[in-house]
Amino acid sequence: MGLSKEQLLARLKELEIDFSQYDHPVVLTVEAQAKYVGHLGGGLSKNLFLKDKKSRFYIVSALADTKVDLKVLSVRLGLGKGGLRMAPEEALGEILQVPPGSVTPLSLVNESARNVSLLLDHRFKSQKFCFFHPLSNDMSISLTTNGLDKFLKSIERDPSYVDLEANPSVGKDQPPDLASLVPSSSVVLPDPPETAASSKVPTENKVSASNKSTKSAASTSKPSVSATKSQDKPANITDVGKLVDDLLESTSSLLLKEITEKNFKEHGEGLGEELSKKIKSQLAAELHNTVMIFKNTAYTEGFHAGMHCRPKRSY
């Protein structure tokens, strides 16, 4: 179990780190937080909890108006384009041990987060103080960068401030400038509980069934257009976790693309509704096709499993 908000605040006091605390209702966005502390003059922070393809995790903490391009950041870390994505919610609970909307550099206080890399916006240093949630998003505390650094060093972290808006060239003679910030090891999460269906069908049978999905579907009923393309999809299309990850990645990529300063100014408080409309219109067809492929492939695997387990007739 991770530290509580009260335990974290007590630790800051033990370290003689100056801070001010502000209670407020639970907030899930920087815009909502600004309604309660934005008038106090400090810098508001946005915090992204990310993972790469090797299950290494990162917290990117930046000023609210800093533009963070995940594709550029991936290249700068040496991960290639698309190397970073939003971390799944179960990782949030298992590794940082904080609820959604509560990610900050302070989350690294828990031992379970020891392998999570932290990238801090160098623009924090231009602020008199900045606001962070203390493991719970029903409170904000103000910290100077000196106070934040003192806290991070107390948990054996060397603060790394970087220009998150930079886009340096990366090539043969110009190695990724942030490669040293990639965690040296990945974080192993507990395996999800095995379902009854998956325990009865070996992995080898799953791959075989997926490869035959189009043919089998055709023998039982006329497949939809999306189903006829199932052979082009990877064999793990019946993996629920992979399906959810893909859907979340598509949604989060579109969301991050649309969250810009221009859109904030143009739509104001109506930005949420506008984003909802765009996500529905741009992802509807893709999500429909993906779910239909999942449905048809799962049906086919069930059909093959049934045929394999059918008892032989006795004469």
Score class of each variant (00 low, 15 high):
Met1Asn: 07
Gly2Pro: 01
Leu3Lys: 15
Glu6Arg: 08
Leu8Gln: 02
Leu12Val: 07
Leu12Gln: 05
Lys13Arg: 14
Glu14Met: 04
Glu14Tyr: 04
Leu15Trp: 05
Phe19Pro: 01
Tyr22Met: 05
Tyr22Phe: 13
Tyr22Pro: 01
Asp23Ala: 15
Asp23Lys: 15
Val26Asn: 03
Val27Thr: 14
Val30Met: 03
Tyr36His: 13
Tyr36Met: 07
Gly42Glu: 02
Ser45Ala: 09
Lys46Ala: 08
Lys54Trp: 09
Ala64Tyr: 05
Ala64Leu: 05
Asp65Gly: 00
Asp69Ile: 02
Leu79Glu: 11
Gly80Thr: 08
Gly83Met: 03
Ala87Phe: 01
Ala87Leu: 02
Pro88Glu: 05
Ile95Leu: 15
Gln97Phe: 02
Pro99Met: 13
Gly101Glu: 05
Ser102Phe: 06
Pro105Val: 05
Ser107Gln: 02
Glu111Leu: 14
Asp121Gly: 05
His122Val: 11
Ser126Gln: 14
His133Ala: 15
Leu135Cys: 00
Thr144Val: 02
Leu148Asp: 03
Lys150Leu: 09
Leu152Tyr: 04
Ile155Ser: 05
Asp158Lys: 10
Tyr161His: 00
Val170Phe: 03
Val170Thr: 13
Lys172Phe: 12
Ser186His: 10
Val188Glu: 03
Asp191Gln: 11
Asp191Cys: 06
Thr195Ala: 10
Thr195Lys: 04
Ser198Gln: 14
Ser198Thr: 11
Pro202Tyr: 03
Thr203Met: 13
Glu204Tyr: 13
Asn205Gly: 03
Ser208Trp: 13
Lys212Trp: 07
Ser216Pro: 00
Lys222Thr: 14
Pro223Tyr: 02
Ser226Tyr: 10
Thr228Met: 11
Asn236Gln: 04
Ile237His: 07
Thr238Trp: 09
Asp239Tyr: 03
Gly241Lys: 13
Lys242Met: 10
Ser252Arg: 04
Ile259Thr: 03
Ile259Leu: 12
Thr260Asn: 01
Thr260Glu: 03
Asn263His: 09
Phe264Tyr: 09
Lys265Ala: 15
Glu269Cys: 00
Gly270Val: 01
Leu275Arg: 04
Leu275Ser: 06
Ser276Phe: 07
Lys277Cys: 00
Ile293Ser: 12
Phe294Val: 07
Phe303Asn: 11
Ala305Pro: 00
Ala305Met: 09
Gly306Val: 12
Gly306Thr: 13
Met307Gly: 03
